[in-house]
């Protein structure tokens, strides 16, 4: 067993909803409902799922930007959940985040230099001169030039802004980077530039990525292992090639067959799901996918399946594999 760098156990986030008659807590939204996984050093774990499946919440909970309701986050053999606010701030030096919207996540009134330097100031790294030198180094590293340092975010294109976001995340030399939909706001031609950059940086600095996205082909491309989420739970987790070539969970199958393949010669047999994803406030009893699953059995509406290890080592949460 290879030692894992980051390990998440039974992570949960419940939101009480006030409302209904006279403002009582009428229901609970289970945004994330018991997610466990571990990430090895230097690998990329992809998390895919549709909107509302809890993938972004999971990412934010690892950094405790959203406080988990329950669960354990073990990073380098330390449970982050036991840290005080101050200790947690220090711990964030090792875990950095890249966000989806390169337009919204950069302060428009700060120069690029200031934006990239800021995390170093927060974590007390280097003196002024060293930090400036580091900013220039980082800019070159992400494919920008040192003369960009004095400019403001609005003077850059979407792809360049995402590069700035990456430079900022790298500034404090983190071990783990959580990337939340980092390329979904970008055009195809720019998306591939950023994906390549992320790969290069990973090799160079032995970075560990948690890559959260809805685009299945992007996730496959960048990830070593992929977890599929549905209604706050992981339904399948395995090596990316295996998951894509031979999906086990019916939801994964449907998800993969829904992607329009950019090749007119391949007419995929689509498995089209009926209806919408149910509200996380009222997940169906038993397996939360059973009401849309074409292979549903009696047991599926009664018993909630658990993530089990199959013979080939992959994890699936489905009664078909009992």
């Amino acid at each position: 067993m290879i030692e894992s760098l980051l390990h998440v156990e039974n992570l949960k986030k419940y939101y009480p909803i006030k409302g209904g008659k006279f403002g009582r807590v009428s229901e609970t939204v289970r945004a994330v409902d018991g997610v466990s996984f571990s990430v090895r050093e230097g690998e990329t774990l992809g998390i895919v799922g549709e909107s509302g499946c809890g993938k972004s919440t999971t990412g934010r909970m690892i950094m405790r930007l959203i406080e988990p309701t329950e669960g354990k986050i073990v990073f380098q053999n330390r449970n982050l959940m036991n840290l005080s606010k101050k200790e947690m701030r220090k711990a964030r030096k090792d875990i950095q985040m890249i966000f989806q919207d390169p337009f919204a996540s950069l302060n428009p009134r700060h120069t690029v230099e200031h934006i990239i330097e800021e995390p170093m100031i927060v974590h007390n790294i280097g003196d002024r001169k060293e930090r400036k030198a580091r900013v220039e180094e980082l800019l070159e590293l992400v494919g920008l030039s040192s003369y960009h340092a004095k400019r403001y975010p609005h003077q850059f294109s979407g792809g360049q802004r995402q590069r700035i976001g990456i430079a900022r995340a790298l500034a404090v030399r983190p071990k783990v980077i959580i990337a939340d939909e980092p390329v979904s706001a970008l055009d195809v031609s720019v998306q591939s530039q950023v994906l390549n950059l992320l790969k290069d940086l990973q090799e160079k600095f032995n970075l560990t990525y948690i890559f959260i996205a809805h685009d299945l082909s992007v996730v496959r491309h960048i990830s070593d292992r992929v977890g599929v989420m549905y209604l706050g739970k992981l339904v399948e987790l395995s090596e990316s090639e295996r998951l894509y070539d031979d999906p086990k969970h019916p939801y994964t199958k449907a998800l993969l067959s829904s992607v329009p393949v950019p090749n007119p010669n391949v007419q995929t047999e689509r498995m089209i799901l009926q209806g919408d994803v149910p509200s996380p406030a009222h997940p169906p009893a038993g397996c939360s996918f059973h009401d849309r699953c074409p292979f549903a059995m009696d047991i599926c509406s009664k018993e909630r399946p658990h993530l089990k290890k199959l013979e080939d080592g992959r994890l699936v949460s489905c009664h078909l594999y009992d």
């Binding site: 299945l216 998800l255 329009p260 799901l273 994803v277």
Partner: peptide
């Protein structure tokens, strides 16, 4: 979402 996209297409 991609499964809904499939339905609409």
């Amino acid at each position: 979402d991609v499964t809904i996209q499939a339905q609409i297409l």
